[in-house]
């Protein structure tokens, strides 16, 4: 890790206080993101995967300060964001933008495409003139594959894939360095999904963008990510370079996830029928002691109950599992 990281996240916590059951409820703590640390290098794509409730959406919102962090630090090019006041945060938003999961829900139904794409410029580049702004909207629309003639249309007149292009244009129009993509293709049809993934890859190559690509689908992440971080119940299980992760996952949870991905080949799919894990996700309000994954883990032993495994380096990969050395050997 010679080059300096674009984004450094250290021991990030996002905890919510929720009301417990009963007449005189006690406050319970929901640890949506718990002691998460990772780096994002300039120009790379970091994939973030995990099941629903693993905190991946909360994490992406906390990085952008849409949800306040309760502990830890997030540094963008060395600038600490968690303690930054709102006014000082604004100029930094030019370098960090977000693409949302549900393309239609993330577009204001009463605004035209042109107004939607121009909005970040109005907020972040107030000095820019109207003509220049319009030109930039049109240029960005072209880059993401929208027709200039569509500038006065409304979101509901677009299909999901086209609407997601509008969302991508809105994120890119202020020329950010880092784009956080929160499941940008999960809601799209198969044939459209691949178009959008290719578009994201092209845009990255053209503009030297850095992505944090959040998804629940390991097959999609393999296509776009350079490194992959696996989350489970708000904790990091494994961070590894793509090829190493898919060739030989070290964490038993990564192995479980990989074995459950359906394969579009009937012969292979039927041969590879795995015994699925019985136990379901524990409640995030009552995490198991020690390792969060131990209730579903085939390798769990007394040490996993007693001691929470820390994220540590093995052969240049980062794994939080007591049995990782055995798997690496």
């Amino acid at each position: 890790m010679s080059e300096p990281a674009l984004l450094e996240v250290r021991a990030l916590d996002v905890h919510f206080s929720v009301r417990g059951p009963g007449l005189l409820p006690s406050r319970l703590t929901l640890r949506a993101v718990d002691q998460v640390s990772f780096d994002v290098r300039a120009g790379e794509v970091l994939g973030v995967v995990g099941e629903s409730g693993c905190g991946k959406s909360t994490l992406s919102r906390a990085l952008l300060k849409l949800i306040p962090a309760t502990g830890g630090s997030v540094r963008l090019r060395g600038v600490e964001l968690t303690t930054l006041p709102k006014a000082a945060m604004r100029p930094l938003r030019r370098s960090m933008q977000m693409i949302f999961q549900d393309p239609l829900a993330s577009l204001d139904p009463r605004m035209t495409v042109g107004e939607i794409i121009a909005e970040p410029m109005k907020a972040l580049l107030p000095a820019m003139g109207r003509v220049e702004r319009e030109q930039r909207v049109l240029r960005t629309m072209q880059q993401v594959g929208l027709l200039p003639a569509q500038i006065n249309r409304y979101p509901h007149e677009f299909s999901g894939g086209q609407a997601q292009r509008i969302g991508i244009a809105r994120a890119l129009v202020v020329e950010p360095q880092l784009v956080i993509c929160d499941e940008p293709v999960s809601a799209l049809d198969v044939s459209i999904k691949s178009q959008i993934i290719n578009l994201l890859l092209d845009l990255r190559a053209e503009h030297g963008l850095t992505y944090i690509f959040v998804a629940h689908d390991l097959a999609t992440v393999r296509h776009i990510a350079d490194r992959v971080m696996v989350l489970y119940l708000g904790r990091v299980m494994e961070i590894t370079d793509r090829d190493a992760l898919y060739a030989r996952p070290l964490h038993p949870y990564t192995r479980l996830l990989l074995s459950a991905v359906p394969i579009p080949d009937p012969a292979l799919a039927r041969r590879r029928r795995v015994a699925p894990a019985r136990e379901e996700l524990p409640s995030p309000l009552a995490l198991p002691s020690g390792c969060a994954f131990r209730t579903r883990c085939p390798l769990a032993d007394a040490r996993c109950v007693a001691e929470r495994p820390v994220l540590r380096e093995i052969d240049g990969r980062y794994v939080a599992c007591h049995h990782a050395e055995a798997a690496a050997a």
């Binding site: 919102r61 952008l64 933008q97 204001d108 909005e119 972040l124 969302g167 202020v174």
Partner: peptide
């Protein structure tokens, strides 16, 4: 939320 993220 998208508008907030855009800095509005």
């Amino acid at each position: 939320e998208a508008a907030l993220a855009s800095g509005v």
